[in-house]
Simulated scan of single mutants.
Amino acid sequence: MSARRKAAVVAALGSTALALSVGPASAHGSMGDPVSRVSQCYAEGPESPRSAACKAAVVAGGTQALYDWNGIRIGDAAGRHRELIPDGKLCSANNEEFKGLDLARADWPATSVRSGSYTFKYRVTAPHKGTFKVYVTRPGYDPAKPLAWGDLDLGHPVATATDPVPSGGFYTFSGALPERTGKQLLYAVWQRSDSPEAFYSCSDVDFGGGTTGGTAPAPSASAPSDEQIADGADKSTIEHHGHGDDDASTSAKPSTTEPVAPATPANEPKAAGTSENLAETGASTGTSYVAIGGAAALALGSAVLFMSVRRRAAGGRHGR
């Protein structure tokens, strides 16, 4: 990556609030604290990860998934998380590219936590309105078995935040962790309210006091730095700040119909991105105004350019 582009990416990571004015660009991100599996493996280095779990993830799914660390998403989720993501594929959101993150093993690098209040930090590369919900696994969770919806305490999210304000490249919001011991997992769902798109992440945590089952303790997790993110941006296929690789085909595609979430059990993550939420946030109207304003500006610019060309052509003919 050129020094100029690296500097631009690092600067953008520290001022993500500017992306709020971009309109319907694709949002992206992943849990930064406690660090998500994909962020941890990216921080280790996609080409030569250090931990056994991240090495296995690369063998299973390749390195591209790590460069695309902020793109574990479903474009038309509209709250239908359990309907669209089967058991055993929660960490990848049923996306083949990220299948390495679904590996059932007890040695994923973990963030040390304890019960009580906790400040969550969600690394965001394109902020949008929406709701975050974070769920913890139930007592008795076995990390050596595939993660299922039934393993999560869906009725008691440990954190819920609607439209937090991004600062320094993160959404920061508070929650409370319950009493647990040993290795557990936190599952984060970010459901946008200005789009049916949703993002997902798995964060391995260790409450301490558990048994290792005869295996060595998992290494401590660490999040990627701004410089590491900037270094890998050229290899990402994900739209950063709605621009990134400038390939429109990798942007989130809005639904052609207004999403309506089906009836769900009380303990299931609820739909955001419905017509009511769109009305509450005003995102739909604001997006339309941006689009109309942009179109008008383009039309005016084209007209001015056309008249300028005509005047030059006419001047040329008169001067001959």
Rank of each mutant, 00 (worst) to 15 (best):
A198G: 08
S201F: 00
G286V: 05
D204V: 09
G282R: 07
D246P: 12
S193A: 12
Y200M: 00
H241R: 12
P259M: 08
S255C: 06
D247T: 09
D204W: 11
E276P: 03
L278E: 05
T250E: 05
C202Y: 04
D206H: 04
E197V: 06
T215P: 10
D204K: 04
P254A: 05
T257D: 07
P224Y: 01
S222Q: 09
E280F: 07
G209F: 06
G214A: 05
A248T: 10
H241T: 10
S275Y: 02
W190G: 00
I238L: 07
G213E: 13
A223K: 02
C202E: 02
D247L: 14
T256W: 13
S249E: 14
P262S: 10
I238N: 01
D194K: 04
C202K: 01
G242P: 03
P262D: 14
T212N: 15
D234I: 09
E280N: 15
A188V: 02
F199P: 00
G214H: 09
V189N: 00
S222P: 07
W190D: 00
V189W: 02
T264W: 10
E197Q: 09
G273E: 10
E197Y: 08
T215V: 15
G273R: 10
A266V: 14
S236G: 03
N277L: 12
G232K: 03
G210P: 09
V205K: 00
A218H: 00
S225T: 15
S236R: 00
S220N: 10
N267I: 05
G213S: 12
A263T: 15
G232H: 02
S284F: 11
H240T: 11
I229S: 02
S193G: 10
R192G: 08
S222F: 15
D231W: 04
A248H: 14
G286H: 08
G293W: 02
R192M: 14
